[in-house]
Design a protein around this nucleic acid. Structure first.
Lengths: 218, 218
DNA sequence: TTTATTTTTTAGGCTTGTCTAAATTTTAAG
DNA sequence: CTTAAAATTTAGACAAGCCTAAAAAATAAA
């Protein structure tokens, strides 16, 4: 059995490997966990002892098969709870992350199986992230960062990379959500800022925004 | 903010005061928490420092207003989650306690308010225990232990005192549940065992059973 | 009321997960 | 290739919550 802290570290390492490739540095982990490098080292050693990460001093860490499976299961729980909060309890998509951070650690396989069924076996969470199935399989989704699109290309918003309340609220004010159709009207070479069109309205966004929106291109 | 351990101690003290009157001994708390008296003393001192219990060395502890309010809120959450598990996820009444023990510690007032609404503001949990309202008010319910009834008296089962899976499963095999009509056919003075009738069927129960079933007498 | 027993508290230790400060290793720069 | 900087690990401490063993207080018994 794994402690709360261990589970959170595993999840962090999973996300880091996903975003930046295999083999994660101590500093990256410490950063993600909002703690000190020395604390991260301690935990890394503990997780290595438990065979959920492979690790050589000074060389970074990566999840073992077992570690990955634990991490994915936590992510599955997190995303299912988010669906529950939005679909059943009428929370907004920017309100659910913190609560799901707590709910993801509830231990009961039966609970998650029943929750999944109750929710109608959803494929995506409210931010467009895929929900791993009970075997840990994550359906590969082809999606592209808006920042990668060129002038005149368009797509449907299928997810957000960042899911902080602030960013999501920003999107709400612009009426951008999962399913929105987005077209690049103009793109500035210098700073990668863009003018985009979302259902008749055009507006200006910075690189920071376009780098956090996933589209499925048409 | 209170830790998991602190919350569990507060809940334990609340139940003990409820069952055996105000002023709870260190040993009683240690027993309930399945820990050592010395550990209980440590925590009692910590809770006294935080002003959630009043305590004098060697004299036992009792909840302050603040402590009681925290304890009742945890119990409210526990019971609401139990309703969710049974009503929405189709768990049996003997399966929900352990999971609710975890869910009761999720921190979000908004969550509980919405859950309450989603469940239709239920008054009782699946074991017949009243659900405190958001102000901590618990509707006083008149209920009597089956063991207190005399020959020929009858009532409707409105709750169970003990709610272990084993006891609940025993009741299931006898088709006894919340709402069952129960009549005392015979009562043995010597060991308080009884013959009772539940919907046409008569059978024999020991004192251990009758002391854990609450009835509303007719 | 004096002694024996039970209850409760204190003292000292252990583990988890964190920290700061210092040492070590790796990487980058000249 | 040698030094400077950055990254990482080690050493030593601390709070929370638990433990065992021993001391102290309260209660019961003779």
């Amino acid at each position: 059995m794994f402690t709360l802290a261990e589970e959170n570290y595993l999840k962090a390492i999973f996300h880091l490997e996903n975003d930046y490739g295999t083999g994660v540095s101590t500093n990256a982990i410490a950063d993600k966990m909002d703690t000190r490098a020395s604390s991260a080292t301690d935990m890394i050693q503990k997780l290595a002892d438990k065979k959920v990460i492979s690790y050589q001093k000074y060389k970074g860490a990566s999840l073992t098969k077992k570690g990955k499976s634990i991490a994915v299961n936590i992510i599955r729980k997190h995303r299912l709870w988010e669906v529950f909060l939005v679909e059943k309890l009428d929370f907004q998509w920017d309100e659910v992350h913190e609560i799901a951070e707590q709910l993801e650690h509830i231990k009961s396989d039966e609970l998650i199986q029943r929750l999944d069924l109750f929710l109608g076996n959803p494929d995506f969470d409210p931010h467009g992230d895929p929900i791993p199935d009970k075997n840990g399989y994550i359906k590969p989704t082809e999606k592209k960062l808006l920042s990668k699109l060129k002038k005149n290309q368009q797509g449907i918003c299928v997810g957000v990379k960042e899911s902080s309340a602030k960013f999501l609220q920003y999107l709400d004010t612009r009426k951008i959500g999962i399913g929105s159709s987005i077209k690049v009207i103009d793109k500035e070479d210098f700073d990668q800022s863009m003018t985009i069109q979302v259902s008749n309205k055009q507006f200006f966004i910075t690189k920071q925004i376009s780098e956090n929106l996933y589209l499925k291109t048409i």
